[in-house]
Every structure is written in C-alpha cells, then in structure tokens.
Computed example of a mutant assay.
Amino acid sequence: MSQPISLGLVGLGVIARAQHLPALKATPGLRLAAIASRNAGLETLPSYPDIAALLDAEPDLQAISLCTPPQGRFAQAAAAIAAGRHVMLEKPPGASVSEVQALSALARACGVSLFATWHSREAAAVAQAREMLADLEVRSVEIRWMEDVRHWHPGQDWIWQPGGLGVFDPGINALSIVTRLLRDPVRLTRAHLELPENRQAPIAAQLDMVAGLQTRIRAQFDWRQTGKQTWEIVLRTDGPEIALREGGARLEVDGEARISAPDQEYRALYARFEQLIARGESDVDLAPLQLVADAFLLGEQTRVAAFHD
C-alpha cells in the first residue's frame, strides 16, 4: 500500500479549524504534516510563520492547501507550485481571474496538480439535482443567499477590501452551485451593488443572468440578514420545481423533501484533491469567479449606510 501524501496547511483560521482539519483527519490518503500561520499553530505538528519558511524546512512535503484570504494568495501558490508541490486553493481561488489563470499555466509547466475548490458544489443535494435537471428544461432560477456578516466574519477587515469580494464571498457559493447545475454557460446581464460608505466591497448585490439563450437567473445576496439565515436556489422547469435549501444540503421536489444530509463538503474536496494528484490532473473552473468579476465590471453602485462590526 502506498504512503499517504504529505500535506502542509497554510492558514489556521476559523475555516481551517472547522472544516479543513477534520476533513484531513478523515482522508487516509493524505497526511497533514506541517502548518504555516502567522498567528497560530498546532502543538502536535511543526508550525512555521509563513509558507516560505515551511517550504524551506519541509522539503519532503508533496502538497499544500491554502486557506488564507485571497489577497496575497497568488504569491503563496506560485511559490508552492514552483517548488514542485501540488496545490489546493480555498474558495475563492484568487483575488482575480487572471491570477488564477496564471497559476494554472504555471502548474502545467511545473507538472503539478492545481485544484481550485468550490466546496458548495459538494453539498449533499447538488449531484442528485444535477442528474434530475439533465432531462428537464430550466426556465428560470431564483437565488436567495442572505446571512449575517457579523456572525460569520466578525472583525475580518480583509473581506471588505479590494479582492475580498464583500458579500460575494458567500454569494459565490451559490454561483458555484448554479454553474454546476446548468448545462449552458451562465452570463451576467445586469448587476446592482450596495457598498457601505465606509467600505470598499459590497454588503448586498442583485444580479440578473442568463444561461444559454433564455434561462433567466435572478440572484439576491445580502449580508444584513439576522435571525434565520437563507441559502436557497429554486429552479423552475418544464417539469417539477426543484429547490436546494440550506446551502445545498436539502433537496425539495415540488415542495417534497428528498434529501437532507449533514455537511461532508470538505471531505469530498480532499478526496478529489487526492484523486487529481494520483491522475496527474488539475481542476480549475473559474466560471463562478468570472461572474463576480463581471458584476464589478458591469454593476451599478449605490452607497448605503456605513457598516461597523
């Protein structure tokens, strides 16, 4: 039996602790061997202040998983790829489309695997919904992705800065699901962005999109929702109405529950990363990030009340 792939985890914030560490523990083909983080570490593993120190001190590492904010991630990923390591990118895969395209080209040149992950595509209901839609014509899609930023991103200033995406940080999860479900490419036709007067990224956004020639898609993203959070996608077809709720964990067909399952998204991502490395392949789908970039290009902007944590 072959040895597990040794992996270094870069970034040890909330998402790394809540999702990446448990998923890695549950993936026998991967072995977490070291940590790089400016402000944290694990007592049981070698820990380094940054990726440069990690790469220098751990020459036997085979792969790197990056859980850092998208700003600055290009330099980290490029260093790992140039050092011959396979790289997995937390979503969004970068601060811009062009930098992830450059990373993809670098990975090909260096002969390593690059995986731009979209964890919401691994939600329990997504695969079955996609199978059902293969025989249906989708007439319209309504996305409502609304949550409380103070709960999910307390004190995280980077998310309000250029490259941090603002409300598109969660909203891109919905876009990743829709671009996975629909057969035709999705294009943006109109966007309206609401930016707090003291921030550089939107707190809310409304998008109009089209898949193929006639499937209309309307998305509403908002970071000001309190109480029960809303993550749902409703697809109206020439047959049943198909709804994904709870971020894709729950599938309803004409209002009847078909799937409701616990979160296994990151376990599926790491299993996929292991598979890509074994096959010598990469997986870099930029469709969700491209839609966000287009929203910043085409979007009308309105200044709204200042936001304070």
Results as ranks from 00 to 15, higher is better:
Ile259Gln: 03
Val14Tyr: 15
Pro202His: 01
Gly155Arg: 13
Glu142Met: 11
Asp222Ser: 15
Arg38His: 06
Val138Met: 03
Arg303Met: 05
Ala18Asp: 13
Ala40Ser: 13
Glu43Val: 15
Leu133His: 14
Ala18Gly: 12
Leu207Met: 06
Glu246Asp: 02
Leu106Ser: 08
Phe74Gly: 07
Gln264Val: 03
Gly8Phe: 05
Lys228Val: 15
Ser104Phe: 08
Leu24Ala: 04
Thr179Ala: 00
Arg199Tyr: 00
Ala78Ser: 11
Ala174Arg: 10
Phe74Ile: 13
Leu54His: 06
Ala105Met: 09
Ser2Glu: 14
Gln264Thr: 04
Leu289Arg: 09
Lys91Asp: 09
Glu256Pro: 05
Arg199His: 04
Leu195Ile: 15
Ile81Pro: 00
Thr237Gln: 07
Cys110Phe: 12
Ser120Glu: 15
Leu32Gln: 01
Leu136Cys: 06
Asp157Gly: 06
Leu30Cys: 11
Val87Lys: 03
Leu42Thr: 09
Gln200His: 15
Ala293Tyr: 07
Ala95Asn: 06
Val167Asp: 03
Gln19Val: 09
Pro170Lys: 09
Ile259Cys: 07
Arg218Ile: 05
Leu207Tyr: 12
Asp208Glu: 01
Ala278Phe: 00
Met146Glu: 14
Val253Gln: 11
Asp294Ala: 15
Leu9Ile: 02
Ala95Phe: 03
Ala105Phe: 03
Gly41Asn: 09
Val210Gln: 01
Ala295Lys: 08
Ser37Phe: 08
Asp184Leu: 01
Gln3Glu: 13
Asp135Ala: 13
Gln290Thr: 14
Phe221Tyr: 10
Gly166Glu: 13
Ala40Gly: 01
Gly280Arg: 00
Leu32Phe: 06
Ser37Ala: 13
Asp208Val: 02
Ala305Tyr: 05
Ile177Gly: 00
Ala134Asn: 14
Gly164Gln: 02
Arg38Gln: 05
Leu32Ser: 06
Gly247Cys: 08
Glu241Ala: 11
Leu24Asn: 01
Thr230Trp: 00
Gln206Cys: 05
Leu175Pro: 03
Glu90Gln: 12
Ser65Asn: 14
Val284Cys: 13
Asp222Phe: 13
Pro262Gln: 04
Gly29Val: 02
Leu286Asp: 07
Gln301Glu: 05
Asn198Cys: 09
Thr117Arg: 01
Ser6Asp: 07
Ile15Leu: 15
Gly227Asp: 01
Gln220Pro: 08
Glu256Asn: 12
Ser2Met: 12
Met88Asp: 12
